[in-house]
């Protein structure tokens, strides 16, 4: 038994060292060997924890004292919860689908990996992507002051292309919505000014929304629709929450545009921004394995109440009673 605990401790120490490695050397990225080692160690931990838990059952049967029985039971449930949680984590990661999905107010897109910026994708995704269209009906943003958003909510319409049925969903940051076997949560928002480009003769050359990511007051870049040249945009809201955009290119040409203003000349073209809308960034994830994770967390919580809080509060014997 002691050997088994020694092995568990060695594995835990190795895991801790790997984690230090992670936060010290690979905060953004970690090589494959790192994830392989960590996954291996976590699997060994789950197996050892589960085996150690099984070994405690005879002690539970032998225990005479009620408090000791409760403490042991709590301890067993707690360790089962950890093993279950590690297993749930593997299952969740194995079948994980994670992608970013961007929608501008009024825009409709088919929910499919083609329209997603896929971040990770598990091996089995059969039947995940049936024909479904998402429309961002409206975005409600309340500003506390020009630099602070107080409330962010949106109304999304889901249209099932197979059945022809539609439903409207109210969502917000921290209030994800689910559809099919996926969950979508708002993680980002930005301004989408409507750019109208005309020649000096008044001929319409291009028009469309440009999604700008101006989080934290940082500038953003976008490709000039006619030439592909990179244009820097800085945005600010004044006290009346009126939006002003400053556009500049690499040669230093710059203009200040306010939505609704008359056209201004920029790079030999007449530019007008009649209006702007909001765009939202959604994180789309698979819901596979989420119930298993929640069960694991629930089991842990129940175990804590039994193992620590109940017995420790009753007579303070819990600290020692857990030792088989």
């Amino acid at each position: 038994m002691k050997r088994l605990f020694q092995a568990t401790i060695v594995v835990l120490v190795l895991e801790a060292l790997l984690m230090v490695c992670r936060v010290t050397f690979y905060p953004q990225y970690a090589p494959k060997w790192f994830w392989t080692s960590l996954s291996f160690l976590l699997a060994v931990t789950a197996a050892l924890v589960f085996y150690c838990t099984v070994l405690r059952f005879p002690h539970l049967r032998r225990a005479q004292d009620r408090n000791k029985k409760i403490t042991l039971l709590g301890s067993i449930v707690f360790h089962c919860g950890i093993a279950l949680l590690i297993f749930a984590g593997f299952y969740y990661t194995l079948f994980q689908y994670k992608a970013l999905f961007f929608l501008t107010e009024g825009q409709t897109l088919i929910d499919s990996p083609v329209n997603h910026q896929v971040l990770s994708r598990g091996p089995v995704q059969a039947g995940d992507f049936e024909e479904l269209a998402l429309t961002l009906l409206e975005v409600n943003v309340d500003f506390y002051d020009p630099r602070l958003v107080e409330h962010l909510a949106a109304r999304v319409q889901l249209h099932d292309l197979d059945s022809g049925k539609s439903r409207v969903i109210d969502t917000a940051m921290n209030r994800p919505f689910t559809f099919k076997s996926r969950q979508a949560t708002i993680y980002k928002f930005g301004f989408a000014p409507l750019l109208v480009l005309r020649s000096s003769e008044g001929e319409l050359l291009w028009h469309g929304f440009v999604n700008l990511d101006l989080v934290g007051g940082r500038p953003d870049l976008f490709e000039w629709p006619l030439s592909g040249e990179l244009i820097k945009v800085e945005a600010s809201l004044d006290e009346n929450l009126e939006l002003t955009l400053v556009l500049s290119n690499q040669t230093g040409a710059a203009i200040v545009v306010t939505p609704g203003d008359p056209p201004v000349e920029f790079l030999g073209i007449w530019l007008e921004i009649p209006d702007y809308r909001y765009w939202l960034g959604f994180v789309v994830t698979s819901t596979r394995g989420t119930k298993l994770v929640l069960v694991g967390l629930f089991v842990l919580t129940i175990a804590i109440i039994t193992r620590y809080l109940f017995v420790l509060q009753k007579d303070g014997a819990g600290a020692r009673a857990g030792n088989p």
Binding site: Y92, N174, Y187, V283, V284, T285, V293
Partner: peptide, 11 residues
Amino acid sequence: AIWAKDLYGSY
């Protein structure tokens, strides 16, 4: 972890 699932989409 539960909060992170609501906010970032992963536990």
